[in-house]
């Protein structure tokens, strides 16, 4: 069983890296980009076969290490 974890900055947290990327897109001629927010994606392979337990386990990983919940939100997708 696989899990995909996406970490994003919470709304309202300044993202200077996202802003720099937004500026670079504009300088390449990509118009109409209103906003860019940078995040992280983790692909995790699990021995667990029960989707509910897998989700619970990965959410625990997010709380304890993968995300800093002061500034980041996370979403977990379980992929069979």
């Amino acid at each position: 069983m696989k899990a995909r974890v996406t970490i994003t900055l919470k709304n309202g947290v300044l993202d200077p890296q996202g802003q720099a990327i937004e500026g670079a897109l504009a300088s390449l001629g990509f118009s109409g980009v209103d906003s860019v927010r940078q995040g992280k994606v983790f692909h995790i392979e699990l021995a667990e076969t029960d989707p509910g337990s897998a989700r619970e386990n990965v959410e625990n990983m997010c709380e304890k290490l993968l995300a800093n919940t002061v500034i980041e939100d996370y979403t977990v997708e379980i992929i069979n």
């Binding site: 300044l14 200077p16 890296q17 720099a20 800093n68 002061v70 500034i71």
Partner: peptide, 17 residues
């Protein structure tokens, strides 16, 4: 110390990058 919760808040990338 902020990452392990002994101190409040977080240190982010410098605003200037």
């Amino acid at each position: 110390l902020t990452e392990n919760g002994l101190l409040p808040g977080v240190l982010m990338r410098n605003a200037s990058l």
